[in-house]
Amino acid sequence: MRILVVEDDAMLLDGLKVGLGIHGFTVDAVASCGDARAALATAEFDALVLDLMLPDGSGLDILRELRRRQDATPVLLLTAKDTVADRIGGLDSGADDYLGKPFDLDEVAARLRAISRRAGGRATPTLSWNGIELDPGRRTVEIDGNPIGLSRREFSILEALIKHPGTVLSKDQLADRLYGWEEDVESNAVEVHVHHLRVKIGRDAIETVRGLGYRLRSA
């Protein structure tokens, strides 16, 4: 899951980037409204973590712009302003959730999973397809009740595919979900991870659509 964190405090931004990375998120971190707009224009994110008071404006402006464009990317507001009025203002501006500082890192991760789950129209915390059960919270995968071990990248690819079963995802789209901007991506990285994934969950589970990308094979 690729998320964008917008926070002007360098220390906190670093903590969120590393911490949410440990929780399995692919994190891009920016510290201003301008950078956030640039990031949103060039890449797609599964969720946004937004601070309200930024040096060059308010996070609420970013949020309103997003919603005006009919962009439904889930947004978690993370701010020191957490009076009831602030919360209401934030939620009514289009935020999906609101957390006051200081917060718990695990809670941020859990809320991010929750708002992205709701954005995908799912009620259960786990994703399942054809006997494969994926739990984004605990980061476990089971096939017919038997747990299998996946690397972080493999897990992310399977998570992306299982969220949109039947839909073809291109290599670039998958790479976007795996890597932030600052990471170097080798050209065949996605293919390598898909190969390893096939070995672990079954060779036929992932179908290659030539020239387009990958999708989960329908049952």
């Binding site: 405090d9 220390m11 906190l12 670093d14 903590g15 969120l16 590393v18 911490g19 440990i22 929780h23 993370l78 020191a80 302003k81 006051g100 500082k101 200081p102 917060f103 718990d104 890192l105 695990d106």
Partner: peptide, 28 residues
């Protein structure tokens, strides 16, 4: 209000240190 952000940063970094699997991340 001003104290909240540094405290949030502090807490997050401590949580990162606790959750870090490799020594480098933890040390950072």
């Amino acid at each position: 209000h001003e104290l909240r952000t540094p405290l949030a940063g502090l807490r997050t970094q401590v949580q990162v240190a606790l959750a870090a699997k490799d020594a480098e991340t933890r040390e950072g």
